[in-house]
Design a protein around this nucleic acid. Structure first.
Lengths: 341, 341
DNA sequence: CTGAAAGCGCTTACAG
DNA sequence: CTGAAAGCGCTTACAG
């Protein structure tokens, strides 16, 4: 009645050996036929495939990882999921990596270097086949961890000419400068920069804005409105109200992210502040809904989906040992001038 | 000069055996001391820990998975990341699971049963320690896959009294009915239901709405505005405009998701339609920004973060073989009456 | 409470 | 082009 107690750990799983037996070849031949490695007699490949289908064989990733020293996981480290920017990026990454047989593991750093380091340590244990990380700024320990691991890595969102570094992004500073030039061209003279989160890329955009204002002698420290709190629609509204109350002469506000700008536009409606009549409002990222606002929001379209695909493709090449032409790819940005400026 | 060619695959990695040697115990004792399994002499545990620290030993998840027959991965299957609902859910899940030593693997189904099945097949190969899946509706094949896998599974977002099923959520139909009752109580007589995506939970809310309207004799098929396209702010605006043009008698619209309702509110401003004067607008989920709209949006707060934590905790219990008290947990919802109704 | 043996299911590194 | 041997780094299942 009861099963005979077996000393071995029979798992019932169909293994390479089962396939080999059925196909009448050695396990090694099955292994090679399945991975398309080396030349295997086409006839044997056929027999192996038939056996695989007949038995419903599925390779065991853990055994594979243990024997080959790397998994089929790609770890993606992003700051947040609550900014749609990163959701778009991720979708594109997964769409590229999954068909190639790689699983995407998402680590959320919350913009915290210590958390990034901790996540990376954990992930490296799993021997990822590749790494995708956001931005170029991180702790020395994290940097060293990545280098010593030897795991191929592509950096997202920024461009860099640092040799040996693979990255896909665009110049955040340039984009910040471009929007500022647009506001200046529209005749704005007192242009505030309002930002939350204050992550590295925000500060790069800030630098771009400052550079342009300084160039025309319009920069003033009091025009910087920086709040380390997380970015949100509500915060944007509050900042807008505060900033106009404090400095009624402001005739344009460049918000560092569209959610802030959307909140400002809603607050303007509530407060009866004419946009762009009295004050122009600009955003960044072209998030969903920005084109629906009243007035529609002028912003910068950032190519996050394109960054995701391009970075994933670059990583794919790196992981398979193919040459990667330009190690840094600048995908640019697009100024979207709508009604709010 | 050159390294002697080794026949073995020396990887340089520090292993259990290294720790054992240093601590002067057997590898088994190290293994047990590290996992806290069985009783190990406290003194030995100390020595093992010291050796681990001295050597910087880190266990290999692949070897562990191969030997123990399950990984430390938990697979979470969700429809989308572009609805903030699921982002909140995920954050809560990760916050609970990571400290317990589990990695979260995210699979995006795009509301497609075939894609869910495919994702699950792939994931099951990796022998997840647990499964978290969205909703109760899926293909028979997927259902069978989950059952046969023997992997502990908790279902998210819906409540159910189906025995043996572990789920954490709330009654979507009840929530849909509650909002409808609110609109009726406000004196609305011609209440449209506008939805996109048309996933199972949307249809449950639709059923709740219909049930309430039928109960008071106000149901009409023409009040159902169903669009299978993805939900978005822009779509909400378009639906609102279309629906009022088609049926000017409508005095309330219950949108199935806040993004649609936000779009409607923006469209109302654009078109000069008084809300709630001429038409009341209600949403669902209380997404970010809804409280900032003009007027602020009446909606239903759904406890997705709470669902995420509770489900993760339930799964943790299931994975460690602890008893799980109620197998289904209903976390309810909250009607948030704001200015738009 | 501790350990020696065997095995998890693959791939590497040789040899032929 | 194919295969026998060894090993990846752990844990299971026994035995003591």
């Amino acid at each position: 009645m009861s099963q005979p107690a077996s000393r071995s750990r029979a798992t019932g799983r169909i293994t390479l050996a089962d396939v080999a037996q059925r196909a009448g070849v050695s396990p090694m031949t099955v292994s090679r036929a399945l991975r398309g490695e080396r030349a295997v007699d086409p006839q044997l490949v056929e027999r192996v495939k038939a056996a695989v289908d007949a038995l419903g064989y599925l390779p065991d990733p853990a055994a594979r990882a243990l024997a080959s020293r790397h998994s089929s996981h790609v770890t993606v480290l992003i700051p947040l999921l609550s900014n749609a920017l990163f959701v778009d990026l991720l979708e594109a990454v997964q769409r590229t990596l999954r068909p190639a047989g790689y699983q995407t593991l998402i680590g959320i750093t919350h913009y915290d270097p210590a958390e990034e380091e901790q996540l990376l340590r954990e992930q490296l244990l799993h021997r990822p086949a590749g790494l995708l990380v956001t931005g170029l700024e991180r702790s020395d320990a994290t940097r060293a961890l990545i280098e010593r691991s030897g795991v191929p890595c592509v950096y997202l969102m920024e461009a860099s000419d640092q040799p040996g570094l693979h990255c896909v992004g665009f110049s955040q500073q340039e984009a910040g400068a471009a929007m500022t030039r647009h506001l200046l061209a529209r005749g704005r003279r007192r242009i505030a920069f309002a930002a939350a989160q204050l992550d590295p890329r925000t500060l790069q955009r800030l630098a771009g804005w400052r550079h342009e204002l300084e160039a025309v002698g319009l920069y003033q420290p009091a025009l910087e409105w920086l709040d380390p709190a997380p970015s949100s629609i509500a915060l944007g509204g509050a900042m807008f109200e505060r900033l106009l109350a404090h400095d009624p002469g402001i005739d344009a506000v460049f918000f560092n992210n569209d959610d802030l700008a959307q909140g400002a536009l809603l607050a303007a409606l509530r407060l009866g502040v004419a946009v762009p009549g009295r004050v122009a409002v600009a955003g960044f990222n072209d998030l969903t809904g920005s084109d629906q606002m009243l007035p529609p929001l002028t912003t910068v379209r950032t190519p996050r989906a394109e960054i995701g695909s391009a970075a994933a493709q670059m990583l794919l090449a790196l992981m398979t040992g193919q040459p990667v032409q330009p190690s840094s790819v600048d995908l640019g940005y697009e100024l979207l001038v709508r009604g709010s400026t």
